[in-house]
Amino acid sequence: MTIVLIRAFILYLVVMFSIRLMGKRQLGELQPAELVTTILISNIATLSLEDIEIPLLHGIMPILALVCFEVLVSWISLKSVKFRRLISGSPKIIIRDGILDQDMLRTLRFSVDDVMTALRLGGIFSIEEVQFAIVETNGSVSVYQKSADQPATKEDVHTAKKDCNPPQVIIADGQLREHALASIGQDRKWLDLILRNSGTSIPEIFMMTADQACRYQIIKKDQKN
């Protein structure tokens, strides 16, 4: 039992390291190669956990090797379009100017229900509204609406303002984040002034956010905390 526990801990570390090595892409939508690697890693880890007759190295080695292959394949894919097409395929257009490409649907083995589900998830209920619908290499469907059916933007109604970065968390749980303060182009003097005017101090603040336009919000800690 103790051996299983220790092996589980070691394998957990190896799998965590492997997932980190594969990068953040892994956590989002999976490409075919990434999906294969993920399934294989989970199977290998399970086998090594279950059977203590199998040396731990027989589990660790293929996991690391698969992840390394995956990282190298994605790096080569980044450098070579041909290789990328070979590994991940290419996006396919299934609706063009409101007309379904039935041959492409058959090729992709996509049913009409699949298409309608994807459109509805994008807030579209009629194929006629669609300028382009593209099946991406990870199987998701991207939809571009016809101009007449697109919602009006602020620019369309001439109310667009200057682009502004989202507010940053300057103080979290009584801790100042210097880099966040710098990222909104302010310094400690500005912060001290704000805090003095608000009659508070950094340790008393639960959260403070501010943006580049110097708009800020302060949430003080509850008294019981």
Binding site: L21, M22, G23, A65, V67, C68, V71, L72, W75
Partner: peptide, 10 residues
Amino acid sequence: NHCKASVGIL
């Protein structure tokens, strides 16, 4: 860096 690490591990 991930590529270099992968080559190193391999």
